[in-house]
């Protein structure tokens, strides 16, 4: 188990290194990277100073080393737009993002479990078709569009909820709902697929043959086994989820990393978008690690190193 965690951590570090490398290549691919770190109005003298400050006169390998060392110290540079160190901006915006995404994920898990369990509990094909249609719509909805429609209807037309911003629970409702639609759609699809595979399996038949009630079979045996692929696919699914989170934050002007990223795109604020990308990657790595540990907890065969 310990070796497993260490291996996963190393894998995560490799991912982070890869991301830093990609971002590093990006900065060097667009001419003089010093320009990216300065406002458009910067003078030639400013650019020269920045060139020396970033060590751009040294060999490339050394530059990458310096760059990594800076990142390790939390030095992402200074925001062009806000004129403050990027790490301070990130630290200020991270909690709001975690709040929104965390609540949405929680709601989504509950919704997905309820929908996924409906089919085996009722045993009806029509229910399966309905769940399939709803979850298909969920993953096909453009989150930014749903957000705008929600604002149009619930905030502007019916004036039930605030248009945007944060601070009260009412502010959470629309962004959470919009984000949940997407997350729950994907989760439900994976869970429903897992459920139909597990319920067709021999040990579920054996559990029925032991006279257990359908509810007991579903919650005691089907749910745990069917959730394995859901957790397993989380890693592949996360990049898509981030795109939804960013647009939802942007649409609702939620003060998180996503809207910070949008500001950075509009203001062409490279140091900020670089910081958001790296923090986002770190979050992905941590979530993937968590997912791997969850699988090991759910499936004793993985814990023992037996192929599942």
């Amino acid at each position: 188990m310990g070796r497993y965690v260490v291996a996963r951590l190393l894998q995560g570090c490799l991912t982070l290194l890869l991301v830093s490398f990609v971002v590093f290549v990006l900065t060097r691919s667009s001419g003089n990277p010093a320009v990216l770190n300065l406002p458009a109005t910067a003078s030639n003298a400013d650019i020269e100073r920045m060139t020396r400050q970033l060590g751009l006169d040294r060999p490339l390998v050394e530059q990458y080393g310096l760059y990594l060392a800076g990142l390790a110290r939390g030095d992402f540079g200074e925001s062009i737009r806000y004129q403050v160190p990027v790490d301070e901006l990130l630290a200020a915006r991270l909690p709001a993002s975690l709040e929104l995404a965390g609540i949405a994920a929680l709601v989504a898990v509950v919704v997905a479990c309820l929908l996924g369990m409906l089919v085996p509990l009722t045993g009806r094909r029509s229910v399966g078709a309905a769940v399939n249609a709803v979850s298909l719509a969920g993953i096909s909805l453009p989150a930014f569009w749903v957000g705008l429609l929600a604002i149009d209807l619930f905030a502007l037309r019916w004036e039930m909820l605030p248009v945007s911003g944060s601070g009260t629970p009412a502010h959470l409702v629309l962004p959470v709902l919009t984000l949940t639609l997407f997350i729950a759609g994907g989760m439900t699809r994976l869970l429903a697929a897992g459920v139909s595979e597990v319920t067709a399996g021999p040990y579920v038949r054996a559990a029925h043959a032991r006279g257990l009630s359908t509810r007991r079979v579903v919650f005691g045996h089907v749910l745990r086994n069917a959730s394995l692929p859901v957790v397993g696919y989380l890693g592949a699914y996360l990049p898509l989820l981030i795109s939804s989170a960013v647009v939802v934050e942007t649409v609702f002007v939620w003060p998180g990393l996503g809207s910070l990223a949008y500001d950075a795109v509009v203001a062409r604020d490279f140091p900020v978008i670089q910081g958001v990308t790296l923090v986002g990657s770190a979050i992905v790595v941590l979530v993937n690690l968590g997912a791997d540990l969850a699988i090991a907890w759910l499936d004793p065969r993985i814990r023992d190193g037996v192929a599942g």
Binding site: L26, L36, P239, I242, A261, V265, R268, D269, I273, G280
Partner: peptide, 23 residues
Amino acid sequence: MRLADAALGIPIFLVALALAVAR
């Protein structure tokens, strides 16, 4: 395959945003 596993963990969307800012 190691590289592929590592690449799967990269948040594409954020890299695309960074690229749009850079270029």
